[in-house]
Write a protein that binds this DNA or RNA. Structure first.
Lengths: 211, 211, 211, 211
DNA sequence: CATGAATGAGATTTCATTCAT
DNA sequence: AATGAATGAAATCTCATTCAT
């Protein structure tokens, strides 16, 4: 049986119990997130995760009470941090356009930095919403939606954004485009994430029609 | 994998739609598509499909050789029809802008008319691409991509579309926005599908910035 | 065939006997071999094996990845050992007649000691040969055949065996007679296995006609 | 659907209801025998037989009440005719040696002419013996055994066969060798069935040792 | 005589989870 | 913290057989 070197990412701050204690938990969550994102939560077996971690599946239950708990921790961590950052952006920016700019830019940054969590959320949130125990997914989702909507409607009111399209439709268009990027964006691909953000904003604001 | 697997004759289960044949097959595929779209392919059990059809799960195997075969038939039918229609649009339209208009409009029509197939493709194609036996998914996907790309680059060359954004990035932005619509579009909702198409095209062409 | 089949690591279920490892595996294989031999591989259910072992059928899959894998391990072990011993006999014996003597005697010993594996091979090899994954059955069978054939032709050349019968026909006659014994030989029956071997060799060498 | 030319053997007398009526039955039994012999009775599905006959599996039940009935008809026909011919041989031959000659020769003829039935009997009789409804298999088998044994012991008594080997052991050796031939004998192979018989008898009577 | 749809019992396999060591 | 064995529920699939048309 081959010894498996644990995969360790640079930016992985302690998920639980602030003390530097449970390093292993974070590693395992990282592994799980990658697998959940890659093949889907339901299609990932506890054994897949354990294999990748170099232990037996039963041993995972020393760290987590269930497979679902792993999902919860990953999603809560992701959504919590996202909402936190979006809230700061709304608070600190100076006008709707700047809010929108930064929301989009930060989104692309998150896709760049934690693609697994984004893909996981993107792929599973539909099936999760409404499931008992996953109420927070919709709740945080709605809070995030409100931030975007406030920026859009404020922009329409102030005359900087066009008012002949429905704001919530526009929100959905933007949200879907931005987050779907995770499906094809490759960190070492032709475009860096800042460039993707920039080009998207250019089309979004200016339109496809040549000026 | 069974030892001594009997060699089946080719004709078995090959009554592909079109021969005016088996009505029941089509009904069953319809039911399966709905369930696959709703809860995901892997999360849909053969029993779910059979229950919905009012038969026993084993009886499904009179019509289809496996659950996977049902998926194949649904996807191939969907992608085949889509490519066919897109090809006609490209052939018949008069300029790149008209091609793009109609590609977008037809996409929203398809989302309206067969949301199950669209949702299925949207949710599963990621995990499917690369799987043995599903090569056609990527193949047809690439053919469709080429149609959109030809319209976009032609428009850039003829000066009608802005040339300072990468065409393939733009394609992905549009594709993701359009198809993701299936996640929230409701046939009897606030906007009819023509309205969604129209508003999307307005932002896409004119941009979000107020004129 | 499942969609999204997770890629398993090679090391899974690969604790092949020999590493002194898992005793339980060997026990289970023993049980399986007995049942396979008794009622045929296809007629033996995984549940039969599990029942006999006192566990639930699903639990077998902790040790083996499939019913077929159990068959493989039994057959490979049997054929491997047989070839090994036959090779030694050919190497160490002093003349063709001695080789043939010992090949026959060892065969009857194997029938006596591991009748399950012999019966299994005897009953299933016909249907197995040609099946994908079972190539080794024919391969090892051919290697064994060559050993017998070398002894027979060498004996013909040296004048100790009659030369007016085809060697490969003779090989088949001997092989079939010897191995078929497993169908009726009973360890506690009227004849001990050495006696069966002796009487067979007497007829084989001397012929049925009274001297 | 391809029209399948019915495979018709020369010697195929009406199995049932003397009137030349059920031709189709005989065809179907022929097909079934071929498949049963090829993959084993249990491994042959009713659908396999129907496929090969160019009809649907349900339609077989117009001709036979069950899959097992097909097996019965094939086996009874085979064993009945075999016993009949063996009885004639014993009655008509002039001495034990001639009986044995002709029993062996006829066996090889039967292997040549109806290999399917022989292979079927050879492969399944073990599992069948003892099963309710299959008592005739053992019964006829025992009658056949007695014919051979009478020839062997008579030959021993009259001094033509060696008496220092057990007659029933010898019977088993001969029986196994002869019938096992069906596993490798090919009608268009290197040796015709008469040649196989002749060479076998040469070794059997004269022994392998060079004279 | 054959079709086409279905039954129902039982097969193999999957997998989250538990627990004694 | 981890192993190794097992559970138990549920999934996919097989197949002889029935029966209305």
């Amino acid at each position: 049986m081959a010894v498996r070197r644990p995969v360790r990412t640079a930016a992985r701050n302690g998920t639980r119990a602030g003390s530097g204690g449970s390093d292993r938990r974070a590693e395992l969550l990282q592994i799980a997130a990658g697998l959940f994102a890659g093949r889907g939560y339901a299609q990932t077996t506890v054994r897949d995760i354990a294999d990748e971690a170099g232990i037996l599946s039963g041993s995972l239950y020393h760290h987590f009470s269930s497979k679902e708990q792993m999902l919860h921790e990953i999603l809560q961590d992701f959504l919590g941090r996202l909402l936190e950052r979006f809230t700061e952006i709304e608070r600190d920016a100076q006008d709707p356009r700047q809010v929108l700019d930064q929301l989009v830019q930060h989104s692309f940054t998150v896709i760049h930095e934690t693609p697994e969590a984004v893909a996981l959320y993107q792929n599973e949130s539909g099936a999760l919403s409404g499931q008992p125990g996953f109420e927070y997914v919709d709740q945080l989702g709605r809070k995030i939606e409100k931030i975007w909507l406030r920026a859009l409607t404020a922009g329409q009111k102030s005359g900087v954004f066009r008012a002949d399209v429905d704001a919530s439709l526009t929100y959905r268009f933007i949200r879907d485009t931005v987050w779907c990027t995770v499906r094809w964006y490759r960190p070492r691909g032709r475009f860096r994430h800042e460039a993707v953000a920039e080009q998207y904003l250019r089309v979004l604001y200016g339109g496809l029609t040549a000026p």
